[in-house]
Design a protein around this nucleic acid. Sequence first.
DNA 1: AAATCAATCGCATAAACATGTTACCAGCGG
DNA 2: CCGCTGGTAACATGTTTATGCGATTGATTT
Lengths: 210, 210
Amino acid sequence: MIKILIYEDNPQLREGLTMLINGSDGFDVLASYPNCNNVVDEVQAFKPDVVLMDIDMPGVNGIEGLKKIREVNTDVKILMLTVFDDNKNIFQAISHGANGYILKKTPPARLLEYIAEAQTGGAPMTASVATQVLKMFSSMNNEKGEDYNLSEREKHVLQLLVDGYSYKMIASEMFISIDTVRSHIKKIYEKLHVNSKSEAVAKAFKDKIV
Amino acid sequence: MIKILIYEDNPQLREGLTMLINGSDGFDVLASYPNCNNVVDEVQAFKPDVVLMDIDMPGVNGIEGLKKIREVNTDVKILMLTVFDDNKNIFQAISHGANGYILKKTPPARLLEYIAEAQTGGAPMTASVATQVLKMFSSMNNEKGEDYNLSEREKHVLQLLVDGYSYKMIASEMFISIDTVRSHIKKIYEKLHVNSKSEAVAKAFKDKIV
DNA sequence: AAATCAATCGCATAAACATGTTACCAGCGG
DNA sequence: CCGCTGGTAACATGTTTATGCGATTGATTT
């Protein structure tokens, strides 16, 4: 039996969800609330398996509710529920440990499946939300910037620079003279179009050369 | 009618998938192949709506196949198909523009739903895969590292350092003397536990101070 | 009122860095 | 064979950083 708490300000929807879920085998709505004002106490008292959390609520909204719960309980599965698949909220919710993100237009049968999935450690998402997540994800990691065409040796030197080594230390680390280190670094600066150590370090991070 | 190409080296599974999908209304398998050797030509010739791409194939594997397709076609929806929900492959696939990532143990009915979802712009994922994605996502953004307790002024100086400014330039940018810049920077080094500009810059990136 | 602290400035010195120029050698492609 | 590139090295010069030791002001806390 999956124990559920519901947070949803719209009375019709709150009742509808409660009826639907209670009417299904294996699901039990412990309680439902129109706001998150006492969410921490309620979660601690009822110890639900899954929380259905509406995002757009007056007063303490769903994201805040999520955060409050996560401050005291990292086990309960939290499914965010919303009418919009908008970027900002998705990101917020994920960052704060939501276990799923589904749209209110989800058909009842699917909703039950989603709850069950969440309870067993899955991360149910409406497909459109998943699309947003993938987009955010790939845009974050595909910057890859120009190649700059650094040689292996140059990459090694840059790596050490980034790690905070001085020329002297690099020379001793790589078994070459400090003048050679200078040569390499001069070349690196040319290739990266910079003219100082810290600019090179910054660029190395920004363009994920290291 | 959703037009589909299948890449799957296991003959039984390849045949099974083809039969299943062709036997369903609204789905049409144009062709199926045991490897990705000519994936680019095939995709360009058939212009499918959706490609089912097995990851673990001899020769050119599914990730490589994905990359090759994306080099010439960014519209076709590509569903990755695998037995493992392992971290590395998921990450690779997402970064290179896969539209979904589903496990082979997915029941046939679900598979058809997934294909349809992908075709309409969704991003179907097996729940366990979605869990991995969310974990990667939140771990990437919640590092936030210690606070270091930098004052506003110090943060500003650090910001300019990261942007490659010299002390002189910072002084003129902030309308203070170069000696004051020195003071600030000394303090910053103490707080960050570093002792050079580039270490500070590196730390600023690593700990997302900027 | 005293203590604290962020922000400001000055001076001095040593170390580290940036730049230019030159040079040798090995390997690779035309 | 010749030119090119990457790696190595030296030397000289000027600039920037790092550090230490002060010191004043104004705002906040005790």
